[in-house]
Design a protein around this nucleic acid. Structure first.
Length: 159
DNA sequence: GCCAACGTTGGC
DNA sequence: GCCAACGTTGGC
């Protein structure tokens, strides 16, 4: 049984369009620096489906919404950016022998027929328990139940 | 181990 | 631009 996930991105930094435009529509999903999110990444399996969420970003000029579906094409491995002293993601406490942070590879599957805005998610009773909707939620990688995933695809006019 | 200070996220 | 919420850091 495939599991389902949601990842957040600031579209000004990396958008679903950027993923679609990448070679093979695939990218290394790096930069996660939160332990709970990292632990979820560790549970991701090849073929798992991942909804791609655009957050409002620092300028807040954008509607926060879910815009696309991706899948896991490579399971968790050491995030290379933690070892790069030139990177803002460098972590002095990480070493190749004992990495702290993980990356996965994601491949875009499809843009949703209709993006599903955060406000629309809040109106859907089937999603009332969704982690994304909890107050103060800041997790950038989170699991979705099968029910939540299907409800979101239905709102998107897909699936 | 506690907890205040701090930096970041992200919706509004 | 504001600020609530939250995770992390570091002094003690």
């Amino acid at each position: 049984m495939l599991r389902t996930w949601l990842v957040k991105s600031e579209p000004g930094v990396y958008s679903f369009g950027d993923l679609l435009a990448s070679p093979g529509a695939t990218t290394l999903w790096d930069g996660v620096r939160n332990y709970e999110a990292r632990n979820f990444m560790r549970e991701m399996r090849e073929g798992d489906r991942v909804l791609f969420y655009h957050s409002g970003g620092p300028s807040n000029t954008l509607v926060p919404e879910i815009v696309g579906v991706a899948e896991v094409v490579r399971e968790a491995y050491a995030d290379p950016s933690q070892f790069d002293p030139e990177s803002p993601l460098f972590d002095v406490k990480a070493s190749p022998e004992s990495p702290r942070w993980l990356a996965v590879d994601l491949r875009a599957r499809e843009r949703l027929p209709r993006p599903v805005a955060l406000a629309a998610l809040r109106l859907e009773p089937a999603l009332a328990g969704m982690r994304l909707l909890r107050r103060g939620n800041r997790l950038s990688v989170m699991p979705l139940t099968q029910t939540e995933y299907e409800a979101i695809l239905a709102l998107a006019g897909s699936g």
